[in-house]
C-alpha cells in the first residue's frame, strides 16, 4: 500500500494533501498498489473527501488526545498505520505539520526520507524522488535503501487529479495521551492569508522598494490579482519592519508559485535559489542589467513606483482576479 498522511482544515481536505493523494494515486496505479489516506485528529469529519482523489481505503485515528497536534503522538499513529497496513511508501504534503511529523515517523520506521520533493516515480517497484537541493540551485535524484520509503511533496507542484476511489473506511485506535510535546496555541498572523509556500501568485519586493511602507503598493497589486506579498533578504534585513516569514530565498522560504513578480529585486543567487522554481517570472527593475532579467519570462525596465500602480489599475480594468 501507498499511504498518504492527510490534513483537514475546517472539515475540508487541505489542497497540499489533495496534491499528495493525487500523486499517491498515480504511483499506486504505476506499481499496482492500493492507496490509503490516513487522518488523525479529535474529529476526522471530512476525511471521506479523500475518495475523490482515488483513496481505496480511508484510515482515521480519532480521539480527544489528538485534538492538538503532537509531534510524537502523530508520528506514532502514522508509523503504526504504516506497519499495520504493510505500506512501503508513506507520503505527506510538505506543510508545517508534514515537515515536522514525516521525518520523525520515518526514523520510527527505520526509513529513509526525502523532503519537499518535486517529482516522484516508481522504478522497479522502488520509490525514486526528485528534490531541489541548495535551494533549487541543483536537483537531486534520491533513492531509498530502506524497506519503507518516506517523502513529503512540495505544495503547488503536483497537480490535483480527481479519480473516484472505493474509500473504504477503517478506524484506528487513538493513543492514550501523555505525549512528550503538544501544541497549546496557534497565533495567527494578521490577515490570515495563505502562506507563501502555498501561494499561486507572489508579488515580491526587494531593496528597490526603499522602505517598508512602500510595500503597500505591492499589497494593492497582490489584492488585485489574488496574490501574496513576499520580500527579498535585502528588504527583510534592511530594518523596514518586514517579518522573516515574508522572506523568499535560500535562507527564507523556497516557493514555487505559478506567477512570481519580482519588484526592485536585483536577483542575488540566494534569492534566485528560493524562487527559480516559479512557473512564470516577471521582473520589474530600473536597472536593465539586473541579473533577475536573465530568469524572467517577462521583463519591464522601469520605475516600479510607476509600473506597479499601473499594473493594479490594468488588472482591475481587465477584470483579472475578480473571478
Amino acid at each position: 500500500m501507498i499511504l498518504v498522511f492527510c490534513e483537514l482544515k475546517d472539515g475540508q481536505l487541505r489542497k497540499p494533501s489533495a496534491e499528495a493523494l493525487s500523486e499517491g494515486r498515480r504511483l499506486a496505479d504505476a506499481s499496482g498498489k492500493q492507496l490509503g489516506a490516513l487522518f488523525a485528529g479529535a474529529s476526522c469529519a471530512g476525511s471521506a473527501e479523500a475518495a475523490k482523489f482515488g483513496a481505496d481505503a480511508i484510515l482515521t485515528a480519532e480521539g480527544p488526545t489528538l485534538a492538538s497536534y503532537s509531534s510524537d503522538a502523530y508520528a506514532a499513529v502514522i508509523a503504526d498505520a504504516v506497519k499495520a497496513k504493510g505500506a512501503t511508501v508513506l507520503l505527506a504534503a510538505a506543510t508545517a505539520v508534514g515537515k515536522d511529523v514525516a521525518p520523525r515517523a520515518a526514523a520510527r520506521l527505520a526509513a529513509g526520507y526525502a523532503s519537499d520533493v518535486t517529482g516522484l516515480s516508481m522504478v522497479d517497484g522502488k520509490l525514486q524522488a526528485l528534490r531541489p537541493v541548495y535551494a533549487g540551485k541543483a536537483f537531486a535524484t534520491t533513492s531509498f535503501a530502506s524497506a519503507v520509503q518516506v517523502a513529503t511533496t512540495r505544495p503547488n507542484v503536483f497537480p490535483v487529479a480527481e479519480k473516484a476511489g472505493a474509500g473504504t473506511a477503517e478506524t484506528l485506535a487513538a493513543p492514550a495521551g501523555d505525549f512528550k510535546s503538544v501544541v497549546k496555541e496557534i497565533l495567527a498572523k494578521a490577515g490570515g492569508k495563505v502562506d507563501l509556500s502555498e501561494a499561486n501568485v507572489i508579488v515580491s519586493g526587494g531593496r528597490g522598494m526603499k522602505d517598508g511602507a512602500n510595500f503597500k503598493i505591492l499589497e494593492e497589486l497582490a489584492d488585485a490579482i489574488g496574490g501574496v506579498v513576499g520580500a527579498s533578504r535585502a528588504a527583510v534585513d534592511a530594518g523596514w519592519g518586514l517579518p522573516h516569514s515574508m522572506q523568499v530565498g535560500q535562507t527564507g522560504k523556497v516557493v514555487s508559485p505559478t506567477l512570481y513578480i519580482a519588484c526592485g529585486i536585483s536577483g542575488a543567487i540566494q534569492h534566485v535559489a528560493g524562487m527559480s522554481g516559479s512557473k512564470f517570472i516577471v521582473a520589474i527593475n530600473k536597472d536593465p542589467e539586473a541579473p533577475i532579467f536573465k530568469l524572467a519570462n517577462y521583463g519591464i525596465v522601469g520605475d516600479l513606483f510607476e509600473v506597479v500602480p499601473e499594473l493594479t489599475k490594468a488588472a482591475k480594468a481587465l477584470g483579472i482576479g475578480s473571478n
Binding site: A106, A110, A111, G112, Y113, A114, Q128, A129, P132, V133, G136, K137, A138, F139, A140, T141, T142, S143, F144, A145, S146, Q149, S276, I281, A283, F293, K294, L295, A296, N297, Y298, G299, I300, V301
Partner: peptide, 19 residues
C-alpha cells in the same frame, strides 16, 4: 542507510524572456 542521492544535476536553463 536511509535515502541516498543517485544523481545530482543542475536545473534546466530558463528560456529567454521578453521585455
Amino acid at each position: 542507510a536511509g535515502a541516498q542521492v543517485s544523481v545530482l544535476a543542475l536545473p534546466p536553463e530558463r528560456p529567454a524572456g521578453r521585455r
